[in-house]
Nucleic acid binder design. Structure first.
Lengths: 216, 216
DNA sequence: GTCTATACCGTGATAGAC
DNA sequence: GTCTATCACGGTATAGAC
């Protein structure tokens, strides 16, 4: 079924759910609010997708594969452009992060809501482990492998802890809480993606190098 | 009123609320669950503290000042031990982080729950800005000031973005989601605080140095 | 002053009729 | 696809016990 603007009711439900779950978390949202926001009947989500939990997961899944694809392509590209030694830490981190910046800068609010949802899930003791692992670990292991090659003295323990810090830095940035704006008296703005990623790349790369060492 | 074990019912309510809010967020917890967990009547939280929102804030406030005190002392100490140039980046970051490790290692589950709650609040678009700023910004500005001295070429924008990454890395570690355990096939454990902080300090310090430069 | 039992009223998830 | 009934649950006020 297509509405005049070409967006089906099912999509409208997913969009509304994405936005609301991102802001208020799973328990802070009711199917009624989602239905109202989407301009559809309360029971329609259940009809198209299933119960509340299945709706949540459907929202989470919807953009995950696309994101994995963008990042996989970026990594492949930077590996092809590098010599036999493989890409540098900076290049790998850049391949990991820039696709996210691109997604946030499309002007499609949906991506911003989605990434804020990822921030919620990643930091949730309830959802984080299972949901993030299921959808993102395969790709992340590819990045870790590339980093291992770029940092030949690194132990796995070092690499994975560093990844953890990267993940936290990144997802707090996704969340766009506005706190950094306030703390810095507007020297930084949560909504300034370019600044966020331009600083994050050297920060994270420097962090990896500092922990993992470069000399034997 | 003191129970046999010396913990008042009000404290028991705060403890239960702390644990449950940390795991499930504000909306994922009911006053009834808190009361059951604390072994008290449903209406008692209302009597001692107020409504649900006031209870949430009371939990958040309870340990905030103590935490600020620990960290302020650590910073003061490292400033006193340093020469006229002030402490190094590593020393400042260490003063910022070690008190948290100490709190987590006391064996008092309460601190672990509290810090997981901070992770929730810090990443929440609803709570993050207001609540974190109100209780922690004053102290953080002291740390930023020390970092500005240690990194004389840094702009404010650089310093605050770097702080943002530090904050994200730290709070994801607080959240103890167990994801890093799974991703790393147990090379890293969320519950291994020593490893978490021992790696985080050089990671963050390296990140600051890399972004803010050290040469004129 | 501290605490419990209970009742009120709104809201929510979901199933089944249409 | 939609409307509606059901039944459970949640926040909170109040009355009164100790």
């Amino acid at each position: 079924m297509q509405a005049k603007n070409g967006i089906s009711k099912k999509e409208r439900i997913l969009d509304a759910a994405e936005q609301l779950f991102a802001r208020h978390g799973y328990d802070g949202v009711t199917l009624r609010k989602i239905a109202t926001e989407a301009g559809v009947d309360v029971a329609l989500a259940n009809y198209h997708i299933g119960n509340k939990r299945e709706l949540f997961e459907a929202v989470f899944v919807r953009r995950a594969e696309l994101l994995n694809q963008y990042r996989a392509e970026a990594l492949t590209l930077c590996e092809e452009n590098a010599g036999a030694d493989g890409p540098t830490v900076e290049q790998i981190i850049e391949a990991f992060l820039r696709p996210l910046e691109m997604a946030q800068e499309t002007g499609d609010d949906g991506w911003q809501h989605y990434l804020a949802l990822v921030a919620y899930v990643n930091n949730s003791p309830v959802w984080g482990k299972e949901l993030m692992s299921r959808h993102f670990d395969k790709l992340i292991k590819r990045f870790i492998k590339a980093l291992r090659k770029a940092l030949p003295n690194a132990t796995d323990k070092q690499l994975f802890w560093c990844y953890n810090y990267l993940s936290g830095a990144l997802t707090l940035t996704f969340a766009q809480t506005g706190r950094i704006d306030k703390l810095s008296r507007n020297a930084c703005k949560s909504s300034d993606f370019q600044a966020a990623y331009n600083h994050m790349i050297p920060f994270v790369a420097g962090g990896f190098r500092s922990v993992c060492g470069e000399q034997g």
